[in-house]
Amino acid sequence: MQELRAAARDSLAVGVAAAAMGVAFGVLVARSGLPWWWATVFASVVFAGSLEFVLLGLVTALAPLGQVAAAAFVVNARHVFYALSFPLHRVPGRIAKAYSTFALTDEAYALTAAPAAQCWSRGRILCLQALVQVYWVGSVTLGALGGTLVPAAVVGLDFAVTALFVVLGIDAFRARRDVPAAVTAVACALLGHVLFGGQAMIGGMGLFTAYLLVRYAAGGRAGA
């Protein structure tokens, strides 16, 4: 119970952002002509927000499955970096590990990125991930069901996700106050878009990883 309460507190901000973005995605599914419950299936089974937006565009255009697979790989390749800090070692048990890796979304990663999360309990981590999934699936379903009720003139709700990542980025910066790293992070993210186009996320992440490696080799703030 105490763990559920801690998880609810930790995930509040994600709940707000997921609700806004989930409703936006549900509305898009409703407007695409698919039955509303496909929104719920996408949200619960794929459970990767940005991929679901891309996937909806692909399936309504009847794209071949190979193209779907390529998109899934490109959009979600950034997740390979999350194993570096996500506290999976705090989640014993095969089924629990299976769920915890399945539900390792950007939000779950970001909420466990602070050093304190390395000693959270299994219950707290699993409750946190389950709550994020409930927020996401619930808001997507609501959006799909009420899709026709939202006036077409209301746009821009998707900024909630941008704001969520901005806020979590500022908090990640506050944990270490590493100004050169923060400036380089922004530069790598922008350079990724200029240099790599469709592969911007992988490109930006690769550049930033290279920067961290060089700094490690140079001995600056190693392991700090």
Partner: peptide
């Protein structure tokens, strides 16, 4: 990594 991931 977190700062870089969030920026991206």
């Amino acid at each position: 990594m977190p700062v870089g991931v969030m920026a991206v």
